[in-house]
Design a protein around this nucleic acid. Structure first.
Lengths: 347, 347
DNA sequence: TTGTATGCGTTATCAG
DNA sequence: CTGATAACGCATACAA
């Protein structure tokens, strides 16, 4: 019977591995249980031994072994986030907010930022589950069934960020449809009747799709028309906006206003307009959606809808923390805001 | 003596927890050891049992418990990254590249993006070490001694990203000094003698400091002068660039060119110049540093130095993988590139 | 308040 | 090729 506590060969061998609870216990002259408690529930321990343990601990540079702890506690204090196409988008601000919120409670973020083909694969989620994440934050509602199934099988709480709220499961986002409609309503009020639209691929992006649906809905509502020849779906980016606008200019489409799905696109388009000698907003009005409002600095006479992107990350973080703590959580209402700097009606 | 294998109470209780190796073993009628091998070293197992195990595994939706694995293997296949002020900068592209590179080898990224005060605290690193990261990627060389000490005590490999290479420990970055000098050399060649500079706080950012040192060095070399009243250190951002440029315009400083530490600043400044009726580059030349080159779309006649930011992340990833694999690794030389679109000498 | 002993789920070693 | 069994390092129920 292996009852006697073996003095653990390595106690001698100085620092073959990094210090463990047993090492601290030995140095402090107490049991491992005591050390464990001293470190995580200081209240249950006498002042004297506690300080002795503490001293021993940081003399050895002790760092708790999270794997062992996770194994024993069935909890890692780690949250996974899966955010495709993260580098070239406005997601970083959202993730920053998510991370900051979680960090307040001692949680750490495991980030996956798949590009290209890898974006759709469920192995990504699997990797996070293997790492024992306590919860997961996903982007949008367009999740492969396999993903949802794995989450369910593992009973892992999750939240969908930047997704239409009220779709049953936990989702935090704003009303994309309303945002899209708001821009069009504004243009309608100015007297525009025929406009163009350049946005992200609605096939790949739920956000692009919903936003465009809002635009389309409002177009019908205000009896306006989207000129097919001034409608382009592309990747988000300056270069893409530039190219799209050049194409539309070359087609000589008779629109009096253009709407862009994101300010990156708008910025590129403005350069193309500038180069093409088209005055904004005199000859053509331009509106876009954004979070950082930088387009305004580049081209002040631009109408934008400010999207509360950081707020998404923060709310998602709070939601997960609440779920993990068994607390109730009320989803905040994230508002979009129309910022009008200068606009005119059709030339 | 607890020799007999207890049938583990929960074998009955269906899915009280998520499936473990033992559950799979039971279902497949083999031992846990066999299941473990079947899953991680398929070659060592007979075809027949292997498929039986596989079936059992995914019938139960088995996901390996990383904590247990990490405990046994002393390895987590997780890399930590600490990147302050991540949301509002060009770091996301770097991180995206890092993550993608690591993902190729099955590594996952644990990201910490401290804002404000939290940025300097060593607890952040501690949290990562507790999670058992196999290696760590840090930003820059300005690390608190405590951080370096912890890393050393835990024998955790690490790399410093966007840091001057050749500083002894593993660092990947480009020559900031040369980048700064390059811009000034270009302006000198055009005949400019008196310029201004707006950049990040050199106190907080090693990058800002080095870049400015390159500028200063070249100014001396080419016998040029930096007008003190056109020198401002500020936060990176559109609004800050706008404000800084307005301030400088108000001071009526007789400079013929302005250099900006980042394109965000330059973009804001261009708006201020535009609004102030100053023609670029006819009346004033503007140059900046960037990675995504977006300023060019906003204001084509702008000279920029393209910084290889994504490459940093990729190289850092490869370096860590090499270190973990005991492979040699040769740091790539990351080149900066001067992009001249239109420039003139002093008006 | 403190010590003891067991379980957490895998991997790895060592026999068969 | 497969089975049994000992680590791995910590938390915790139970005893003292």
């Amino acid at each position: 019977m292996p009852t006697a506590s073996r003095p653990s060969l390595r106690t001698a061998a100085a620092s073959a591995r990094s210090a463990s609870l047993a090492d601290v216990a030995a140095l402090a002259g107490v049991s491992t249980g005591t050390v464990s408690r001293a470190l995580s529930r200081p209240g249950m321990i006498s002042e004297a031994t506690r300080t002795r343990v503490m001293e021993a601990a940081d003399r050895l540079g002790y760092v708790v072994n999270g794997a062992a702890r996770a194994l024993a506690m069935r909890r890692t204090k780690t949250i996974g986030a899966v955010v495709p196409r993260f580098g070239s988008s406005s997601f970083p601000a959202m993730i920053q907010a998510l991370e900051s919120t979680l960090a307040e409670e001692g949680y750490t973020l495991l980030l996956s930022a798949p590009e290209g083909r890898r974006a759709q694969q469920p192995d990504i989620l699997r990797a996070m589950l293997e790492r024992g994440v306590d919860a997961v934050a996903l982007l949008g509602t367009d999740q492969p069934p396999a993903v949802l199934a794995m989450l369910a099988a593992n009973r892992t709480p999750f939240v969908q960020m930047w997704a239409p709220p009220g779709s049953g499961s936990d989702a935090v986002g704003f009303d994309e449809h309303a945002a899209g409609a708001q821009v069009v309503a504004h243009l309608a009020a100015l007297g525009h009747r025929r406009i163009g639209f350049v946005g992200g691929h609605s096939r790949d992006s739920e956000r692009a799709r919903l936003r465009f649906e809002g635009v389309a809905w409002a177009l019908a509502r205000y009896d306006m028309a989207l000129d097919e020849r001034a409608f382009i779906e592309t990747e988000y980016g300056f270069a893409e906006g530039f190219a799209a606008m050049q194409t539309i200019l070359a087609r000589r489409v008779p629109v009096t206003a253009m709407v862009f799905g994101t300010d990156y696109l708008a910025a590129g388009a403005l350069a193309a307009l500038d180069q093409g000698g088209v005055a904004v907003p005199r000859a053509l009005s331009v509106a876009s959606f954004n979070d950082n409002d930088f387009a305004a600095y580049l081209h002040p006479p631009l109408t934008t809808v400010r999207l509360p992107i950081r707020e998404i990350g923060e709310a998602a973080g709070r939601l997960l923390l609440a779920r993990l703590g068994g607390q109730p959580f009320e989803l905040p209402v994230l508002k979009v805001e129309l910022i009008v700097r200068a606009s005119t009606g059709p030339a």
